[in-house]
């Protein structure tokens, strides 16, 4: 059982969280100017890094999305923070 730090609620069990996406992706817009390849890259491509990774997660019980940095191999969590502009 891993435990993650919700910036709003504190340390909670992994079962309360849901992985959303790798951090740093921005939605290409407007749709009319986005190529199929650009859209596919946004929708589907991932780095799936082995080691340190920065990801967006959601704490299902409070509904807040946040950023988490962790090691995908050792599973050590090095920190979590609210999305930019969101006070925790």
């Amino acid at each position: 059982m891993q435990r993650f730090q919700c910036p709003f609620c504190g340390l909670r069990d992994e079962t309360e969280f849901h992985f959303a996406t790798e951090a740093g992706k921005s939605r290409p817009e407007p749709a009319e100017e986005v190529t199929d390849a650009e859209w596919a890259a946004y929708l589907h491509l991932n780095d799936a890094l082995k080691g340190q990774a920065r990801e967006v997660w959601v704490h299902l019980t409070c509904g807040e999305y946040f950023l988490m940095t962790r090691d995908t191999l050792t599973r050590e969590v090095s920190g979590s923070e609210a999305l930019p502009g969101r006070a925790s």
């Binding site: 959601v58 807040e64 999305y65 999305l83 969101r86």
Partner: peptide, 23 residues
């Protein structure tokens, strides 16, 4: 219900000013 709520929250927090709308 849970899935719709999650998608609405995603848009609310990631795209809009979350202080102007609550779910």
């Amino acid at each position: 219900v849970a899935g719709v709520l999650l998608r609405l929250e995603d848009a609310r927090q990631d795209r809009f000013d979350p202080s102007r709308v609550v779910l």
